[in-house]
Nucleic acid binder design. Sequence first.
DNA 1: TTGACATGTGACTTTTTGGTCACTTATCAT
DNA 2: ATGATAAGTGACCAAAAAGTCACATGTCAA
Lengths: 107, 107
Amino acid sequence: MKTDDDLVFRALADPTRRHLLDRLYERDGRTLTELESELEMTRFGVMKHLRLLEEAGLVVTRREGRQKLHYLNPVPIRLIHDRWIDKYRERQVSALANLKSELEETA
Amino acid sequence: MKTDDDLVFRALADPTRRHLLDRLYERDGRTLTELESELEMTRFGVMKHLRLLEEAGLVVTRREGRQKLHYLNPVPIRLIHDRWIDKYRERQVSALANLKSELEETA
DNA sequence: TTGACATGTGACTTTTTGGTCACTTATCAT
DNA sequence: ATGATAAGTGACCAAAAAGTCACATGTCAA
């Protein structure tokens, strides 16, 4: 059996799919053709990736005529967070994460 | 090139490794042998999984005589969160995630 | 110091995943 | 209608990951 969260984690495991999420985080409502244009991969590869993201619920889509618009859904990401970070430790962990980011910016 | 975050996402992609994180979230400082005992897999399989988790920084270890103790490090998880959830939307998303969890509990 | 215990390594096989391609379907504008 | 545009399907190949095994190392206790 393939559980719900399994789809999410598997979807996130690929760098191309994470890149697609990054692009949609930046601005969503994009089409397959638009997303494809900036990747060194055929349309079919990108389509497969988008399908996995959609099946995982990380991306939701809406049809508009002959094109399909893609939107980022961050809820599954939050659920990953909540699985291993309880609200009592959230502040500390968040502070550490910020510290790490800042150190890396100046490095 | 294999980036830092790539190791984290790949590590999280496997159900056995997520299970190991769950066990360590429950209580950490466990040994390989202890973690192995509850899995239907040889010691070698579990060892490989733990090594990937450690390389990803999701688990940190400390040697204690002939045994190796494993601890959960939640910081990389928080960094995943911060990648796609900005602090302005964090509240909404968190609320939606809680709602989803509650609905599933009673279902 | 010897036997038992806890962890580690490298080679190997099987399964899963990523990517491409030929071909198809649906929608729009002229 | 028809040519152009956007998205979809199933088969296929190559690359990567999961898991096991024979063998090896380091540590403890009697």
